[in-house]
Structure formats: C-alpha cells, structure tokens
Amino acid sequence: MNKPDEKKSRWTRFSAWVNGKSVIIPEEDLFPGGDLRPAPGKKCGREFCRSAEREGERLYSFLSGYTFAAVVVGVIVIGILMATVMALPRFGQPDNPTNNEVSQRYLEKGEEETGAPNAVSGMILNYRGFDTFGESCVLFLAVSCVFMLLLRDEKNTHPKDLAQIAREEAADDSSRDVILQQVSSMIIPFIFLFGIYTLLNGHLSPGGGFSGGSMLGGGLILYVAAYGSRKIQRFFNGKVYNIARVCGLMLYAILFGYYIFTGANGLPNHIPLSIGGLILPIDVAVGLVVACTMYGFYAMFTKGEL
C-alpha cells in the first residue's frame, strides 16, 4: 500500500510502472475523439468525466496545430510536385521516353498477337492481364469489405431500426413512384442491351468489361430504385449475386492461369485468336464482377442486405 508521501519516491514510481500502473502518462485506450461517451445505461463517474474533459482539450490543441501543419506540408508537397512536373518531358513529343518499343509493339502487333483490334483491351487483358486480374480482385475485395462492415448483424443493427426499415419498405411498396416506374420500364431494357453490347464488343471497339459491367450495374440499381428490392429478389438474390461474382472471377482465374502456365512453359495453348481469343471471355468475367460490385455497394449502403 502506498502512503501519500511515499508516492513521490522514485522507487515506488518505478515499481508502480513495473506493475503496469499508469504513472508517467495515463495513456490507455487513447483514441482522440474515440469512444468517449460511456456505454448507455452506465453512469458517468467523476473520474471518467475528468478524463473525457482532458481528452477534449488534447483533441482541441491537436486539431488547431494540425490544421496549420497540414497546410504547410500541403503547400510544400504541391511546390515540389509542381517543380517536378515542370522538369518532366513535354506532353506528346515523339521522342519522349514513353514512346519506346513496348508501346510500338502493342500498337503494331497487338491485333495479330491477341486477336483484338482494340489495342487497349489487348494490352490490359492479354499482355498485362495479370495486373487486371489483380484489379478485379481489388473490386471484389472492396465489396467484401463493405459486406463485412455493413451487412446487417446483431452488432450493428438495433431491433428498432429493423422495424423502422420494414415499415418504410411496406410504405414504399404500397405507393411506388409511377413516373419512375414507367420511365424505367422503357429505359432499363436499353441500358441492359447497351451494357451487353459494350461487354461483348470490348475486343473490337472502345468498351469492355469495366464499362459494360458498370452499365449493367447501373441498370440493376435503377431497377431496384424503381420497383423495390422484393421484385429484384425474384431473380437476383444474395445467392445468385455470390454465384455471379465468384463465377466471374474464377472464370478469369482459370482462363488466365491456363494461359500463364502454357505461356511460361512454352507449351502450345489452344485458345483461338479468331473471335477475340482470350479477351472475350475475360471481358464477360470482368463485366460480371464490376456489375456485382456496383450493385453490391448500392444494396449495402441503402439496406444493408442483398
């Protein structure tokens, strides 16, 4: 037991510190602005209020210094980057370092080697398809993260909120917006048609998986907004959603894995170059992933479920 006068002696301080009692700076659970409010139902003790006050002061002094420092650092970084950009090669000059044998080969031999007249598709989906596979995984991961955060569960949803959402949905279902429904019934088929067209012609003309997929995703979002989530669940529920995006990515992984394995080992691959070769199926796969990503974000942020 510490007596008050002993408390100041170095040895007690030291032993208290060894024991893990906070003497130097009471720093545990130091999240400025974090969970400062006590849990509901608990009374705010005097000790707690004082620490909350101190936290507030700390946060305030931190923020006032922070703004100043952020402006100074920002200005310095902008200055450095501006100076750098001034020293870069001028845009669009023929003898720039970027105009080398790599881009030359993409443009000149792209169609012959990948089967795609659209050089951009040929480059991102065939020459550098591994990077694009990574990018598709980024989209997949992003939507999985949002699932992890927002998918309704007992931790982030109160029963009251659920009841509220159910009431709102019932009200929405009984009085749908007629103008929106009529217009979407005319537009949505064309959106889907154009999306599919862009998707399937990615190797021939500008477009491809990313743009076509986002059109499909946009169409789905418009459909949900106009007709409600109950309607879309008849053909596009969580199960179909998961199957679509996993099938899309796995199609990409398997096709490109086969392509890498044969290419790296010098084996002949049996992928025809005539109808877009590797690019057409990969465009479809990417399209599925992108459409599911767009729709997944919308569904998560509006309802928290598919």
Partner: peptide
C-alpha cells in the same frame, strides 16, 4: 506471366 516475355 503469359505468352509474351517482359517488357511486353
């Protein structure tokens, strides 16, 4: 990673 050698 594919049929075409780097840098392509």
């Amino acid at each position: 990673m594919g049929k075409f050698p780097a840098p392509f």
